[in-house]
């Protein structure tokens, strides 16, 4: 029975992967900027599904929250603010399409060939059956890694590495500061320009 043989993990992977790829292609082919944004939201959400499927539930939630939520709202803001009839559809010359498609195809070919070149990558995890998605509890570990403690790598012999080097405290801090700077910078860049009234005009 076909259905009985279905590997549900693979099934959902296929589902989300098709969604992600399909909507990504939708982004590519659509000329309406708002629709592109919508397709992108769907693609990113499907990617989040892929993340959940791969056991990275925290990253998936993060993807939904920040990427899909935050970024896309920002993007849609931009879309709406700059969307006028004449800007929504901007035709690209056919030659460039062909060129881009050729280069992209070449790239895609390289990547796909590469993906199947290493046997280890194409071999499923032999213990996959014994693992459950519901068991993926990496949130605590990620949180600990952010404050510099690697719970998942306790076997590291080097005490120094275990103590500090293996954690992600410094990158976390850097990214935090970076975000702050970016927020201020973006607010500054996008601030409303005050028009100076010409005297007498």
């Amino acid at each position: 029975m076909l259905l009985a043989a279905i590997n549900w993990h693979s099934f959902f992977f296929l589902f989300f992967a098709l969604l992600a790829c399909g909507f990504a292609v939708g982004v590519l082919v659509s000329t309406n900027i708002v629709r592109m944004a919508f397709y992108l939201v769907m693609s990113l959400s499907a990617t989040a599904g892929l993340f959940f499927l791969a056991g990275a539930e925290f990253v998936g939630a993060m993807q939904l929250m920040i990427y899909v939520g935050g970024t896309m709202v920002l993007l849609i803001f931009g879309v709406m603010l700059t969307a006028r009839e004449r800007f929504i559809d901007m035709q690209t010359p056919g030659g460039q399409w062909v060129l881009a498609a050729a280069a992209g195809g070449l790239f895609f070919f390289i990547l796909v060939v590469n993906a199947f070149q290493v046997p280890d990558w194409s071999t499923p995890n032999p213990h996959q059956d014994q693992l459950s998605i519901a068991e993926s509890k990496t949130t605590t570990q990620i949180g600990a890694a952010f404050v510099g403690v690697r719970l998942d790598r306790p076997e590291a012999d080097n005490a120094t590495q275990r103590a500090g080097m293996s954690g992600y405290l410094l990158p976390f801090e850097i990214v935090s500061v970076h975000l702050l700077v970016v927020l201020i910078g973006a607010a500054y860049l996008a601030r409303a320009k005050r028009r100076v009234d010409q005297p007498g005009s």
């Binding site: 076909l2 043989a5 279905i6 590997n7 993990h9 693979s10 099934f11 992977f13 296929l14 992967a17 992600a20 790829c21 990504a24 292609v25 982004v27 590519l28 693609s43 990617t47 892929l50 791969a54 690209t92 460039q96 399409w97 060129l99 881009a100 498609a101 280069a103 992209g104 195809g105 790239f107 895609f108 990547l111 796909v112 590469n114 993906a115 199947f116 990558w121 194409s122 071999t123 499923p124 995890n125 996959q128």
Partner: peptide, 28 residues
């Protein structure tokens, strides 16, 4: 695809698709 367990390569293909689509998107 439905019966075999999926592997890293499958994910990589999805990633490649998104990547290339993104690139072409940037290019066009």
């Amino acid at each position: 695809l439905l019966t075999d367990p999926i592997t890293v390569s499958h994910y990589m293909v999805v990633g490649a698709v998104l990547f290339v689509v993104g690139l072409v998107c940037m290019g066009t």
